[in-house]
Amino acid sequence: MLSAVWQTLTRWYHQWGSPRYFFQYSGVLLRWLWPLAIVATMTGLVWGLAFAPADYQQGDSYRIIFIHVPAASAALLGYVSMGVAGLVGLVWRMKMADIMIKAIAPFGAILAAVALITGAIWGKPTWGTYWVWDARLTSMLLMLFLYLGVIALINAIPDPRQAGRAASLLSVVGVINVVIVKYSVQWWQSLHQGSTLKVVGETAMPAEMLSPLLISMLGIYLLFACTVLVRARTEIMRRERKSQWLKEALQ
C-alpha cells in the first residue's frame, strides 16, 4: 500500500518535472482550476463581507481579515514552496523547479504587499494609526523584502537558466532564514513590548466567521496556483519555442 503510494508520487514527480508533460496537463488542469478559484474566492469574500456577523469588539472593520489573512498565509506558503522548489532544482537539477520559482515570485510579492496594505488599513480603526511595528506586520515587511530580493536577482541575470538556478539557491537560503527571522522578530517584539494586532478570535473563532475565512483562503490559494501555472506555461513557451513538441501542442 505504502510503496504503491510512493511509486505514484515518484511517477508524478518525474512526469510533472518534464516541461512537455507539465505543459500538456497544466492546460487541462487550468480549465477546472480557474472556475473553482473564482467561485471559491467570490463565495468566501461575499460571505465574509455581507453575511458573517460583526465582531463584538472591532465591529465591521474586522471584515478586512477575509483578505488579509488569506493573502498573508499564501505569501508565506509561496515563499516556502519556492524554497522547496529551489532545493529540488539544486539537488536534482530539475528544469521545472527554477521555472516554478520564477512563476511563484511575482504573485508572492504582490500577496505580501496586499497583506501589508490591508494590515495597515486595518490598523487605523484598531490602533488609531496606519503603521505600528507589530510582529506580524514587521515579519510580512521582511517577507516582502525577501521576495523583492529574489525578483531583483532574477531580473539582473540575463541568462534565464542561470537566473533560475541563482534564484533557487537564494530561495533555499531565504527559507532557512525566514524561520530565524520569524523567531527573532517575535523576540524583538517582546523586548520592546509594542502593540500587537489581535486577529479576531485568535483562539476560538465562531464557525460563522471561520467558514468564510477558510473558503476565501482556499480561493486565494487557488488563484495563486492558477497564476503560477500560467506563468510557468509562459516560461516553458519562451524556453522551448524551438521544440517540435511545443509546436505540435499549439497547432
Partner: peptide
C-alpha cells in the same frame, strides 16, 4: 459597515 466602510472598502 458601521463607521468603517472607508477602511474595509479601500482595503
Amino acid at each position: 459597515m458601521g463607521k468603517h466602510g472607508i477602511y474595509v472598502w479601500s482595503a
